[in-house]
């Protein structure tokens, strides 16, 4: 029975580690489906992480922190939109700038306001057991014995998929990313839809960052996002630009990450650096295997101008 306990812990870790990636990648999926690529997710997550921590620390409410994190990241998402959508500047470039700003600003805020505070821990987000469902062997604890933000991430993906694939709004977002001119001809606002998608994406990246500081680490640490924003970017591609695909890809990443920790814990003698690069190699391999069935939005990265 020991291996069942081990498997359960491994899968629980997988889900926990996947959650911040899911938030961020689902959000970015929306942005990219609308035709805007934002490589500044790392910066947005850092802004989310520091905001959530600061607000939760000051107010004592984690949920207020999460809300503030989403809003703060959304503000930066809208600024990103002003530069890339309204002004039509290059999206990769602006995203790179956003990463620098996010890294600098989050560390700056943290040091300016918490540089001298020594007791900085906040109360962790509690684990909530779903009645009955958490009794299911293995799957119960893995899926139904987590904190509320994990549930939110798990529910978010199918909901986002439904909106994107089954509603008029989703259709509009998808068409903006494929044929913006046709969308405009049909009387929809390309600019408005793109702003909406980018702001929503930024909000979720902020929540993903908030997860790391208030639900996971119970504190903020500089650069604590540790590359997850870039991984989320890969997950969007990996997940074929679909919210459910993003969820599965996040789980796969979470699994490889948890697995390498587990192998080290079990004293498996292999150069641990190779285990650590496993997720990144896996991404490239998966991209190679899934190539050809291109799902990339046709207008991705192309600024839209009404006059052109």
């Amino acid at each position: 029975m020991e291996w069942i306990v081990g498997l359960q812990a491994l899968l629980q870790a997988t889900v926990r580690m996947a959650a911040p990636l899911t938030f961020t990648a689902v959000g970015e999926t929306y942005g990219e489906r609308a035709g805007v690529i934002n490589i500044g997710l790392e910066g947005l997550m850092l802004i989310g992480a520091v905001t959530a921590y600061a607000v939760a620390f000051a107010s004592g409410s984690i949920w207020l922190g999460v809300l503030a994190a989403g809003l703060a990241a959304m503000v930066f998402g809208v600024l990103f939109g002003v530069v890339t959508i309204t002004l039509g500047a290059n999206q990769i470039v602006t995203g790179a700038a956003l990463n620098l700003v996010g890294l600098g600003l989050s560390s700056f805020i943290y040091r300016a306001f918490f540089g001298t505070v020594t007791d900085r821990a906040i109360q962790p987000l509690e684990t909530v057991k779903t009645p009955l469902l958490s009794q299911i062997p293995v799957l119960g604890p893995v899926l139904f014995e987590q904190n509320l933000l994990v549930y939110a991430a798990l529910l978010l993906a199918p909901l986002a998929a439904w909106v994107l694939n089954r509603t008029m709004l989703g259709l509009a977002i998808r068409s903006v990313g494929e044929h913006p001119k046709a969308t405009a001809t049909a009387g929809l606002s390309v600019i408005g839809l793109r702003y909406g998608a980018v702001a929503f994406g930024a909000l979720l990246a902020g929540v993903g960052g908030a997860y790391l500081s208030v639900a996971y680490a119970n504190q903020f640490v500089e650069n604590m996002v540790a590359g997850r924003g870039f991984i989320a970017l890969a997950i969007v591609v990996f997940g074929r630009w679909s919210p459910l695909g993003a969820l599965w890809a996040s789980l796969l990443f979470g699994f490889t990450f948890a697995l390498q920790l587990r192998l080290q814990a079990a004293n498996i003698q292999i150069a641990y650096q190779f285990l650590q690069i496993l997720p990144y190699v896996a991404t490239i391999v998966a991209m190679i295997l899934l190539r050809g069935q291109s799902a990339q939005p046709k207008a991705l990265g192309v600024p839209y101008t009404e006059r052109a």
Partner: peptide, 14 residues
């Protein structure tokens, strides 16, 4: 911090 936490949980499960 998150990686440290997960690593500990894996070791405990082991």
């Amino acid at each position: 911090v998150g990686a440290g936490k997960e690593a500990a949980l894996q070791a405990m499960a082991d």
